[in-house]
Nucleic acid binder design. Sequence first.
DNA 1: CCGTATCCTGGTGGATACTG
DNA 2: CAGTATCCACCAGGATACGG
Lengths: 144, 144
Amino acid sequence: MHDTGLAEASGLKAAGCRNVTPVLNRIGDKWSVLIVMILARRAHRFNELKREIDGISQRMLTLTLRGLERDGLVDRSVEPTVPPRVTYSLTELGQSLIEPVEALGRWAFAHIDCIRAAQQRFDAAIDADVPAQAGAPGALRAIA
Amino acid sequence: MHDTGLAEASGLKAAGCRNVTPVLNRIGDKWSVLIVMILARRAHRFNELKREIDGISQRMLTLTLRGLERDGLVDRSVEPTVPPRVTYSLTELGQSLIEPVEALGRWAFAHIDCIRAAQQRFDAAIDADVPAQAGAPGALRAIA
DNA sequence: CCGTATCCTGGTGGATACTG
DNA sequence: CAGTATCCACCAGGATACGG
């Protein structure tokens, strides 16, 4: 395992985390990654995105798009026709994000079964330990 | 319908996203990645983690740890001494997460300046467009 | 030391109605 | 079409107190 990166002893610990955190906040939110992945295929217009995602509110689409634009990941171009024609696309920076995100996606895809199995084992163990009746004070089990 | 690669040029549709989303919810939360990265260096005991993170509440530490354990990323071992000695460490699965997360970390580190520059440009443009007086209805600008 | 139970607040995000 | 403005429900998560 090459250790070129973050987890190296002391140096990058705090520094590395402080750099990753804001990025995580962005890609960790409900819609950003999804939008980036959709725009990775091709540029989309506003309502095109809204239809494709379906489940997102206008508000959140606008907000997320603004955030991505602010971070320089997405480009917003307006053709001053009437009605206005607004097209969203990935910037170079945005495209460079695809690779690490896909790496994560591949990891998720590769291990999803493993994770689900672990979850079921865990939940089963809980039930075994706690044959408790309804209403009994549980053990912080808001996990399930 | 097994799509081996997540995002071939045109690929990555809903199926891929549904696999990534739960993972994103985990690594996207406030503490999970941080904990995983700390445990990547060495196993820690509960209060050791609490001290190292400092800013986290017991509640969230417990909750996050439980979540990671449930997903099979973290192993919790209790030595039945008194007082109890509980040690948390990464499982194999947990260790395999380090690589893609570090990839993201490297991306963040490499582009953080670029992002901050974009943000400042964006904010400056907003201020230029809106020399508005205080109290004026702004344009969804809860971004800054 | 390692948690759990309870209370409470602030922010996230959905629904809805309105505009250019 | 492409947003904005406003209201509101929900719950993540901090503070605190207690228990094995």
